[in-house]
């Protein structure tokens, strides 16, 4: 039981150390430098940011004509 516990403690220390090392490497390697860029990935020329989609419940709210379907 105690050897088992020892193995557990050592392996968890190794795992934590490994994770930390990986993080430090990534940080100093510049992996996080332009991180916010990733948030633009769902958008492209066809569906650019700044345009809302799927506003189909609008016209019954405000009595407008059907201006945009959910597809636009």
């Amino acid at each position: 039981m105690s050897t088992g516990a020892l193995i557990l403690v050592i392996s968890s220390l190794l795992i934590i150390g490994g994770g930390l090392a990986l993080f430090l490497w990534a940080f100093f390697n510049g992996q996080f430098d332009h991180i916010q860029k990733g948030s633009m990935l769902p958008f492209d020329e066809e569906e650019p940011p700044g345009r809302r989609t799927d506003q189909i419940l609008r016209e019954i709210e405000e009595g407008e004509h059907q201006t945009r379907g959910s597809r636009k």
Partner: peptide, 10 residues
């Protein structure tokens, strides 16, 4: 996608 606005913090 629906808001046309990117996520607050990637």
């Amino acid at each position: 996608k629906v808001l046309g606005r990117p996520i607050y913090s990637y």
